[in-house]
Design a protein around this nucleic acid. Structure first.
Length: 552
RNA sequence: GUCCCUGUAGCUCAGUUGGAUAGAGCGGCUGCCUUCUAAGCAGCGGGUCGUCGGUUCGAAUCCGACCAGGGAUACCA
């Protein structure tokens, strides 16, 4: 890649300067190449002279000019100039740029892919909510974040497994089952109370009704504990199915649905507790068993086994991560959690460290809360159900593409306002359609070319020399850098911004450059460019889990 | 109290990890459709980057203090 090449060129130049005694021999600072915001500063820029100036106490402009004399001729670079206070600005050659249209075309669908991952096995675990109710918009944010991140990491050569962890054991399940039992009896006209800390949502009433329609009143005849167990199991499965259905609709697929119960059945829980006890990470206090986080730098210890003998959620999460790292040998693990789990981050990292794994191998992405709005108004509760608005309702209202785009257009650590009105409006003010429209416009051009039976495989791309054409190519050339950046930062929101920028650049090109025209040579060249633009735009959208429509 | 996230244009948010004159979309105003999709394009207006200090050639970005909003601080998950 060009960036790396420029770094190499600069490194060689400095080495040479040092060898020739033009620069003091000191260790090289990290050489960074950035893309200047201002296009007048060229395509790439380096602040290396400024960095060297500090270390050598030589005027940065002098260093810059010295380095320039040592840069060799290359086929890509038109000019490298020194700019005050001490930058080196690189500008690419027009004919090199135009040739890249051919290069991208040749790379085809794999354009932008890289091998940063070297096939390393990475697990991305996300959503993972208790099957006690429907998915909400916050869960949708995690789902979209996780699935998009997984797509990006695959493009970067990682071997990815996407996993959903079902908490189907702990005390919340118990509460859910009791709540459902109460609703079931109520529905049959029998006096019953939903537990105070239980699940009071109206969806539980619907669920009870559904079960009665299907199974009748047979659970009423069983003993309470037996009824709760059987009824509960059915209820949990129904909720699970609904969650799976909603996720599928959102285009979120998982490789593995992991059950918390399996940790107990397969003895992982016992094993890890023994392991931690052996390493003195556990201690008994006040009748409970604690994980001694304080000795690992945490500010407080945490209970793993309650005084009643039941493991806490923390305990099962310990077993779960033992399973991920020790039993399944993932090279690294990415967990995506909502902001309400933020307090859990430090202790999980501590646990992983206690298991003998580098805590860096566990990356936890916390996304902040989502606030729903309609126009300016805050909305929380659905008018239809009386419960909190579900993800499903939002998907139905605004559509999956808009849903995915809006969730992706915000960085995970900013709280987001999701405006249903805006997301829904199919008009110019909606960036989703703006991007997709660019794709549809291209498809229309390609259809015309096909109708006229224009074979452009022999198109000469070097005929493209105008600013709109070259700007578009420059934007396409950024795509591989984008993939790398998102892979490193794990911040997929850059995709949404890139998609908009690429669309903008294309629309500008479209306005200025007639593609299918009387000039056969230009037509063929531009068809190549339009073709690769379509490819990259579609790939960007697909990475985001969005569709790239051919007509709108 | 402690910990995490956030504070940038009227609104919603970016800002490539310390770079050059701080950007986009929406909203407002003005123009552009007999030619491949006007769901488009071009232009105008809009800023004390929460506040105050510090670090240095250079700060929206790093450090400290303070202010404001959200979240977490359970033998719930």
């Amino acid at each position: 890649m060009l960036r790396k090449r420029l770094i190499n060129l600069l490194t060689e130049a400095v080495n040479k300067a040092q060898k020739d005694g033009k620069l003091p021999s000191i260790g090289l600072p990290e050489i960074t190449i950035e893309r200047p915001q201002n296009t007048e500063h060229g395509d790439y820029a380096s602040n290396l002279p400024l960095k060297l100036a500090r270390l050598t106490r030589v005027n940065p402009m002098v260093i810059a000019k010295e380095l320039l004399t040592l840069l060799p001729y290359t086929e890509e670079i038109e000019s490298a100039i020194a700019a005050p206070p001490g930058f080196i600005n690189f500008t690419l050659k027009n004919n090199w740029l135009s040739r890249q249209a051919d290069q991208i075309l040749q790379a085809g669908k794999s354009y932008g892919d890289n091998d940063m991952g070297h096939g390393k096995r990475v697990q991305v675990e996300f959503v993972s909510i208790n099957p006690t109710g429907p998915l909400h918009v916050g869960h949708g944010r995690g789902a979209i974040l996780g699935s998009t991140l997984a797509n990006i990491l695959v493009a970067s050569g990682y071997e990815i497994e996407k996993e959903y962890y079902f908490n189907d054991a702990g005390s919340q399940m118990d509460v859910f089952k009791r709540s459902l039992y109460a609703r079931y009896l109520q529905r049959l006209g029998i006096q019953a109370e939903v537990p105070e800390n239980g699940y009071h949502g109206n969806y539980m009433i619907d669920l009870a009704k559904e079960i009665i329609d299907e199974y009748g009143d047979k659970f009423q005849k069983l003993s309470e504990s037996e009824a709760i167990a059987q009824l509960g199991e059915i209820g949990i499965n129904k909720v699970k199915d609904q969650i799976k259905k909603d996720l599928k609709l959102l285009r979120v697929e998982f490789d593995i649905w992991f059950r918390e119960q399996s940790l107990y059945k397969n003895g992982q829980y016992e094993k890890v507790m023994k392991l931690l006890r052996g390493k003195n990470h556990l201690s008994e206090k006040e009748g409970a068993t604690w994980f001694v986080s304080t000795s690992l730098g945490e500010d407080k210890d945490n209970v793993v086994v309650r005084s009643n003998g039941a493991p806490t959620y923390f305990a099962t999460d310990i077993a779960y991560h033992y399973n991920k790292f020790i039993e399944r040998h993932f090279d690294s693990v990415i967990n995506i959690w909502g902001a309400d789990h933020q307090g859990h981050v430090a202790r999980m990292k501590a646990v992983v460290g206690a298991l003998g794994i580098d805590p860096e191998q566990l990356q936890i992405i916390i996304h902040q809360m989502v606030t729903l709005r309609r126009g300016g108004e805050l909305v929380r509760v659905s008018k239809r159900t009386g419960d909190l608005i579900t993800l499903r309702e939002v998907m139905d209202e605004v559509g999956v593409d808009a849903c995915r785009f809006f969730f992706l257009a915000r960085s995970a650590n900013s709280q987001m306002d999701f405006d249903l009105e805006l997301a829904k409006r199919q008009s110019q003010e909606n960036p989703v359609y703006y991007v997709q429209y660019a794709h549809a416009r291209i498809a229309s051009i390609m259809r015309l070319a096909e109708e006229r039976r224009i074979n452009y495989t022999d198109g000469d791309v070097s005929l493209m020399t105008t600013t709109p054409e070259l700007t578009l190519i420059r934007k396409l050339l950024y795509f591989p850098e984008l993939i790398e950046m998102v892979t490193i930062t794990l911040e997929p929101h850059h995709l949404a911004y890139y998609a908009q920028e690429l669309a903008t650049t294309f629309h500008a090109f479209y306005k200025d450059c007639r593609v299918v025209s009387d000039d056969e040579a230009i037509t063929k060249a531009r068809l190549k460019l339009v073709n690769v633009t379509q490819m990259v735009l579609a790939k960007t959208l697909n990475l985001m889990g969005m569709t790239a429509p051919d007509r709108m």
